[in-house]
């Protein structure tokens, strides 16, 4: 299935879903500079409170059958960038072994007290990746059995990959 068909299937079941348009062309672009780039996959924006239903459809709909969670990560938009408000994006990248198609899903969360349902029951691969996102961004995954720090040590102050993270010098700094 190509991107528009996948989007059509998703959209009929989830009216809250929307496609993310590719980054806009700058108005006055110098000739020598390259155009904004994005991979030719389908990028959709899911609604946080119905994310778990969305995930179930993404996984279980036989026309979609996204059985392979390639990557799970997050990005922090601390300052308003263009039309982007301060927020966290949790980014999922799916692949379907059956249909060989791919999908990017972004779920936007508020920057204070971010909370998103865990998809560990659907894709067990999310286990450590969700923990890593929690570790780095402080995004809580609801329903994760062991949502603790994984790479940093327990008791590490702050969320290192947030853009407003300030490193407090400790005894390891020289």
């Amino acid at each position: 299935m190509n991107n528009s068909e996948v989007y059509a299937v998703l959209r009929t079941q989830l009216p809250g879903l929307s496609e993310i348009p590719p980054p806009p062309m700058p108005v006055a672009m110098p000739a020598h500079e390259a155009k904004p780039y994005r991979d030719p996959y389908l990028y959709v924006q899911a609604v946080p409170h119905e994310w778990i239903e969305t995930a179930k459809i993404i996984k279980n709909d036989p026309r979609l059958a996204f059985d392979f969670l390639i990557m799970l990560t997050a990005a922090d938009y601390v300052l308003p960038m263009g039309n982007v408000q301060p927020r966290f994006d949790v980014i999922y990248h799916f692949y379907s072994f059956q249909h060989k198609h791919k999908l990017f899903v972004k779920v936007s969360l508020p920057r204070d007290n971010p909370l998103i349902p865990s998809v560990i029951s659907l894709w067990p691969a999310a286990d450590w990746q969700e923990r890593e996102v929690y570790d780095m961004f402080g995004i809580n995954f609801e329903g994760h059995p062991n949502c603790t720090r994984i790479l940093m040590w327990d008791g590490f102050p702050g969320w290192p990959l947030r853009k407003d993270f300030v490193h407090v010098p400790d005894r390891y700094d020289d």
């Binding site: 700058p26 780039y37 991979d39």
Partner: peptide, 19 residues
């Protein structure tokens, strides 16, 4: 330019990707 890319390749240990 502004944008996002996801590249992946077959590393000796599996799919190595950069977002």
């Amino acid at each position: 330019p502004v944008g996002e890319s996801y590249a992946q390749l077959e590393a000796p240990r599996g799919v190595l990707g950069i977002y």
